[in-house]
Simulated scan of single mutants.
Amino acid sequence: MHFRLLGPVEVVGPDGPARITAPREQIVLSMLLAEANQVVPMKRLIASIWDERAPRTARSQVQICVSTLRRHLAAAGLEGRVSTLPAGYLLQAAIEELDLLSFQQCQADGREAARRGDLEGAARAYRAGLAVWRGEPFAGLTGRVVETVATSLIERRLSVIEECIAVDLQLGRHHEVIGDLVMLVAEHPLRERLRGQLMVALYRAGRRPEALDAYHAARHMLVEDMGLEPGEPLRRLQQAILADAAELKVPAVFGAQAVPVVPLAAVIADFAGQDRGNGAAPDEVRSR
């Protein structure tokens, strides 16, 4: 890949790396990559650099940044990638050239495979997408707009992790995902979907008391720290575990026949994202 955004921003062209070190140029490049193949308005680039404190010369300074970026890209063999349009600037990149586009394509492929019932294919696609992450996006860059975009990307990564684990649970891989889920719940304690997936995996592995302990730990944290009860789906999951509900059993079509898989920990970047709330409900348990 020539462009890497999902971690420290890097550009490596056919003629070598593009040495883009100035913070403003890195911010402009990151914003163009985050919306690759789309026009990024001048106002958005200005806001990404200065927030609400833009100087009178902001427009001309952004133009200088873009001009410098073009020189760096050309020196790396990536000439002509940034276009000037009436509404703003556009950076062109193919899916295989930008890790973000590759990640998004893998997520779409995974969802389509899951929709068709190809769970093995879905798991492979999700893992391929997660493997392109190298760390926190926009690392080292600051600003309200930059941080908002980075948070959005981290949230999308977590959603793919949850979707991948949901597929693994459907495939009967509960033993394999417990370690990953313990780590993920520790990093993101407010995401109730991850907590619910951990409960399901523990229950299916014959560790019913630990599954219930995971619920009580979540409830204690929410009540003590936030004054909130767990969401209804998580409460319903606890009741299903207490009742040994049939829908919690391993799908018979897979059961012990599950195919070995590389653990998620081997393909996901080792960094802690920020929690954005309780997350979605566990999809392993439906209304009864």
Rank of each mutant, 00 (worst) to 15 (best):
A87T: 08
I241P: 02
E187A: 14
D283R: 14
L212M: 15
S30M: 06
A201L: 02
V40N: 03
E232H: 15
D118T: 00
D15C: 11
V185Y: 01
A272F: 00
L264V: 04
A272R: 14
L222P: 06
D180C: 11
P263T: 06
A214V: 12
F254A: 06
E96M: 11
D15A: 12
I27G: 03
T68L: 08
A114C: 01
V253C: 08
S102T: 15
L169Q: 06
M199R: 06
L169D: 00
D168R: 01
R19K: 08
M199E: 05
I161A: 10
L169H: 04
P282V: 09
Q197R: 09
R81S: 04
I154C: 12
G13E: 06
R59A: 15
L158G: 09
G255R: 10
G16D: 11
G255N: 06
R19G: 02
Q238S: 09
E187S: 06
I95D: 05
E155K: 14
G110W: 09
H174I: 05
L264I: 02
G88R: 05
K249H: 05
G117V: 05
E247N: 11
P230N: 11
E35T: 08
G80V: 03
E162V: 08
A22R: 12
V250T: 15
D51C: 10
Y203R: 08
G77S: 09
L202P: 14
R219M: 13
A217N: 15
R193D: 11
G143I: 10
A205P: 07
A75L: 00
A269T: 05
L130M: 00
V167C: 00
P137T: 09
R191G: 09
G140Y: 01
G172N: 05
E10M: 01
A217F: 09
R59S: 12
R204V: 07
V267W: 03
S48Y: 04
R193L: 14
R191K: 11
Q257F: 13
R288S: 10
R134G: 01
E232N: 09
E10V: 15
E284Y: 11
L6C: 10
G13V: 13
L184D: 01
G172W: 02
L248N: 02
R56E: 04
A93C: 06
L212W: 14
L198W: 03
L78C: 01
V28N: 05
D51A: 13
R236K: 10
M1W: 02
H175C: 03
R173S: 00
G143N: 06
A214I: 14
A131T: 03
V40Y: 15
R115L: 07
L194K: 11
R286D: 09
G231F: 03
G206C: 09
D118G: 01
